[in-house]
Nucleic acid binder design. Structure first.
Lengths: 218, 218, 218, 218
DNA sequence: AATGAATGAGGATTCATTCAT
DNA sequence: TATGAATGAATCCTCATTCAT
């Protein structure tokens, strides 16, 4: 009896996961409008109607996909920072973790990004907006702390506004990921782009380093 | 006869421009999928069927909007480069011109940006994408000439890949403009962002400067 | 063992009644098409599948509700007839009992009325319709016996077709109840309507009375 | 040119009429829910999408059908009254005209009736409700006048409340039409019902006649 | 007997594109 | 050249019914 119940529960949970995975893949690959419930159902191996047993509407499914992915994101960045030694290394680690994670879970990246596109914001519930914002907000805040530390340690230009740098790094990373996610990358090949990920944070860090001999005029 | 012909020509060109302007505005405001041919026609003051006299399909219309937008950018940036003296100043001028132009013509900016979101790409044929990218690619290549000049003049790190830097600057600028275009800016206030526009190119440039004493290891 | 069996029987009968009560309420409030099996199940406190243990289909459930409703009417009217003395009084009593019962149990009334709206009929098989009508037909036939008695006793116009009068009285009563059940009565106030209930049967009866002096020409 | 335009206009108007006619037929035969846009389109000889060129939604189409039919109804009753001579004949003529017109245009009848069914009232716009109510209201008012005249002329029982009689006649007629509209009439055959139409108004009128010799006690 | 997850046919609506005028 | 009516494929969602547990 319990066996039965749990078996059923398990099957249900599996179904839910299958739907979410499929939906994530499709939404992420083709966007909200382009993805049809029919296709999600087919690929998830269930009937169209079944989707509506688990999610009240296409929109609810989309939001669930979003929120689910977003949760893991923050922790990931946190881990990267904890693992790295030294201010500069931490900044670099978080920056690259943001890029790597985004490339691995494009749908999450897209939600994060969409939160900052007016066009799409209306699709997101306030709750989602808040959760997403808080992740970015945390990153920016933590990042600023690191920069401040760096300044205090004499590593970075004392005239630098720490928060500004965080925003700058975030926007740069986002812009690069966007390019990388295009299925046949344009303007630049994938391999070069990979190099650019590392090069970009190097340039950014170098751009804020303190120059002892010749006083920075920034 | 000739009078009539030229009059007709003029009317035709006007119609074309009106359609393009309207389409740009709508694509920019609601995205490709959300924009209907019906609405474009209505707002442009022509009949739905007329659109198809000027553009073979919705996609071609979109492409034309893009190309027109990119060209506008091109001229603008060209002017900025011509006006500035010295490599570094030219790079800064072009970078800032890109931002200013984007803020002045948000719809062009948005349409172009969307072309780099997969959501829109799924609706566009590879041919369309290729066309847009090649224009942007050309433009980035021009930009990298400047960087190459800078390296030759001993201003920038000789290990730097010029084209990469163009891409980096472009993505950074784009990321910042995106933030600036949000109606209720989150994360950062408008004023700070204005500062960041200038600070960002300073950081980027400083990040690639040659360091005579300690040889660049990038 | 027997205890258990009877207990189960009781439970089963209770379930059946609960389902029927709930269905009646819902069918009455929202109509056949608008009422879903899901909602019936929920409100009756059973699972959707359980409904199909008791009733083969939605239609059979509806039919059962109807039949049950008609039977209730039947008993009630029968009682009224038995209690009254004299043909005329019996007819009046049955007529008023029909109205009172309808007002006391609006859902039964509504379900039965709907069975005579083509909208509902399209959802019901001919068999179902036939079943309901035969019950109502029987009931009307009983009623016409009274009229026949009245004619034989020289009370009513001998040219009168007894069954027709039953139908007429039934439709008139139904029409009046319909009006009375409107939440914000239009056309006539509730109080007046109450008077009309009595006045109407008076008029109907007077309309069929034998007129000794001038031979009825109906 | 004008030829063309008018030809086109005519075609459009014809289409509209065809759709309305078809819709009336179907709505009226199967009810709102049972009728599909697909079927209306097919039978009207147009494509599904075409319906939406003429009517914004299924509901708007339904209401248009309703309102269109309702307009002619009032005039019809008016004509019947004008044509008949004498109070009694006028009442009979209007009553029968109501029945005949209802049978000829069932959809109109249904709208009229539905205005008095709580279930359906929510589907009707206030405007429709008002128009429909006014037709019934007019009938009832005019009818009352006739009854009042009859009383003054010594034809009808002086104790009779004129308005009540109007309501009674209206509800009786409605109840009978309802029965007649069932596709395979139940409880009573079509032919008998036809007789009942006339018999019913005879009974009603006879039921309110003044009885000079034996004072009416109603 | 009871459950409730799964099904899939069916229905309203949208919109890019065509074509007769 | 310009029009806008017509098309129908495509999409989201509902719900009666089935069936494994």
């Amino acid at each position: 009896m319990i066996e039965n119940a749990s078996k059923r529960e398990r099957k249900k949970a599996e179904n839910r996961q299958a739907i979410l995975r499929t939906a994530e893949e499709l939404f992420s690959g083709k966007g909200y409008r382009e993805t049809t419930m029919q296709e999600i159902a087919e690929r998830a191996g269930v009937a169209k109607g079944t989707l509506y047993l688990y999610f009240r509407s296409k929109e609810e499914l989309y939001l669930t996909v979003c929120v689910r992915g977003v949760s893991g994101f923050g922790e990931n960045l946190e881990k990267a920072r904890a693992a790295a030694k030294g201010v500069e290394e931490k900044i670099r680690a978080v920056y690259l973790a943001y890029i790597r994670h985004s490339l691995k879970q494009p749908s999450v990246f897209r939600v994060l990004r969409d939160t900052f596109l007016e066009q799409v914001r209306k699709n997101l519930s306030p709750a989602t907006m808040k959760e997403v914002s808080s992740i970015i907000g945390d990153w920016l805040k933590n990042e600023s702390e690191l920069v401040r530390d760096g300044i205090e340690q004499g590593l970075f230009d004392p005239g630098l506004e720490p928060y500004h740098f965080s925003v700058l790094a975030w926007r740069t990373a986002t812009g690069l990921v966007e390019l990388a996610l295009l299925q046949d990358p344009i303007v630049i090949e994938r391999a070069s782009l990979e190099n650019l990920f590392e090069a970009s944070i190097d340039i950014l860090l170098r751009g804020i380093k303190r120059l002892p001999e010749q006083p920075g005029n920034m």
